[in-house]
Design a protein around this nucleic acid. Structure first.
Lengths: 345, 345
DNA sequence: GTGAAAGCGCTAACAA
DNA sequence: TTGTTAGCGCTTTCAC
């Protein structure tokens, strides 16, 4: 720790001197420019090797105005986000894609209004080339903030507004929900209930819409709103059981809520799946495989979604950003879901 | 997105001009130096406001050699890390502490040898002032790498070596394990088994040691090794049941393994806790509260650990790093655990 | 193909 | 207290 290497790290100048070339040539070699004759290039490379030279990013950024870093901004007023493995998986996908393109990941977690300002300053400060924003709630001001800062961005999850500029990645919530309900129908179930997520989030609404696509005439008493927590799921399940003791199936908008529902069903003496079939959403293995019985659920590839977000952003950054060429620009991405059948339905 | 503000962002120069002062004075005001007379300072502040000036971090770093950014390096050869909410919680604690000190969090995920080199280059490149390393495995080379790069660091979890220089934060695995076993003993259980984690990780070893502290003469057949997955827990539980059908309690080294064990016990017709009492470790709410019955477990404050790691590192960075003053230097931190009693024991 | 020179935007001596 | 000046380490015209 007393190593003063930070102060004495070799510079391009040193490399150039050792290789007997100019700084410009050394720079060319380091950056892979092809206009340098082989023997010279070789000498430079050796000097780099011997000196353990690593370019100083700050100096480079100062002139190129590129950071090779992108921010991942997470709005997290709710702790829910952090008890789910959702976040981690998404981040891993992002990280993989970014790494493959030599970009760094700067994580910006926010928990309140003050944090929003901080993030705004950070983006405006040009520390990063772009941002990946997880805007979980209605009317979130993060996207507006990024736009004001002039930072290109991509949103995780369908935003609650829509324009031609905004890029996002989401899974096919509606289609996945339809598959879930159809599966239940195929099992011969006729009184199918739905535990929805908080309806101020697009994902919840989309899943409910999918439910209704298949069951347009569903008894409204068969629908209860949860909040993506186990307790919320349990509460909703109790309500449903109260209102419709004859229900024979439940489609929960998340695995976590399904797990709460499972507990209530068991406590109420209903066997799963014999008496009541249950389908979840997310396929969060650490939940779906742990429940008893293991959950039949709608799988979404969370990591892939993260990867796609990163790819979309990187792609946009490479664009000449010539507003004129809005034609062939990248578009939002909806990833497919698929039903994973386990024991609960 | 067509906003050219990135290119045309106002510089200190512009601020100075508008305020009618020199660049140096403007800089002083921006950086909160107190040697500037009030009226001047006020004018500068107004100019900053009007122009929407935000300092260019690259330029600043180039001269100060500070980044106000620290790296979080996660070795992740196993996906386990990502299905656990462990990571997310830890990161949140880190983020909070860092934010409070105006530092950014750069996330470096590694998945293989190539990534290690990448991380080495990154650290050596002086992009960050320090690193928080999660070194989960025996003989991990990450710490050595950071040391070579001259980057101050703090490790998450007790490392498998020990010297006076290395700072780390870990929970009291051994003490927590003792509490768990004593609780079981207090319940009148006499044939207490242990499902250990992979014994190449310090946490697993420490928890096993705690078990043995209380039960020094435990039948070796009452100990089985798992791998921190539900399947591993299930497998270990099967073995134990095979070898010692008369066991009346199990202490699992993690909640996730306990959940697997629970399933096997239930399948084997044992009631929990009547026939077999079960205690886990971690108090991962998303697991411990979801199992049936909810898990009695050893709680560790993961977020706090993250916060402490960050604090320790920032503290070290502020030190004059005068090797001489190794006396009052910061020391490793062991956080307390506590038993949370739910229904399983 | 290679080198010389001019900055990128900022801070920190040093003068005034 | 304020201004002048000299870089931080790098890329990138522009000559040669």
């Amino acid at each position: 720790m007393t190593d003063p290497s930070f102060a004495s790290r070799p510079t391009l100048e040193a490399v150039a001197a050792r290789a007997g070339v100019s700084r410009a040539t050394a720079s060319r070699v380091v950056n892979g420019s092809n206009g340098v004759r082989a023997p010279l290039a070789e000498r430079v490379r050796r000097a780099v090797e011997e000196l353990g030279y690593v370019p100083n990013q700050a100096a480079r950024t100062l002139v190129t105005r590129r950071n090779d870093a992108i921010a991942v901004v997470v709005a997290e007023p709710e702790t829910r986000f952090f008890s789910d493995p959702f976040f981690a998986q998404q981040v891993r996908g992002i990280s993989r894609e970014l790494t493959a393109h030599d970009n760094q990941l700067v994580l910006l977690l926010t928990e309140g209004a003050a944090d929003y300002q901080r993030v705004g300053r950070y983006l405006a400060g040009g520390h990063v080339d772009g941002a990946l924003i997880f805007s979980l709630h209605a009317n979130d001001s993060l996207p507006a903030l990024a736009r004001r800062a002039g930072t290109p961005f991509v949103i995780g999850g369908r935003p609650d507004w829509s324009d031609d500029e905004t890029l996002f990645v989401d899974c096919d919530n509606r289609g996945g929900a339809r598959d879930a309900v159809r599966h239940l129908l195929g099992l011969g179930r006729r009184r199918i209930a739905h535990i929805a997520g908080p309806l101020d989030q697009a994902a919840s609404v989309d899943r409910l819409d999918g439910f209704r696509d298949v069951l347009p005439d569903a008894d409204p008493r068969l629908i209860a709103e949860g909040d993506f927590t186990p307790e919320g799921g349990a509460r909703a399940m109790s309500e449903l059981l109260d209102r419709c003791p004859d229900l024979d199936a439940v489609f929960a908008a998340s695995d976590v809520m399904a797990s709460g529902a499972l507990r209530v069903l068991r406590a109420g003496g209903r066997r799963v799946p014999e008496d009541v079939a249950v389908v979840g959403f997310d396929d969060m293995i650490s939940v779906a495989e742990l429940t008893d019985p293991p959950l039949t659920t709608v799988h979404q590839d969370i990591e892939e979604m993260g990867r796609l977000m990163a790819r979309l952003l990187l792609h946009r950054l490479e664009q000449p950003s010539d507003a004129a060429s809005a034609s062939a620009g990248p578009a939002p991405i909806i990833t497919p879901t698929r039903l994973v059948v386990r024991a609960s339905a």
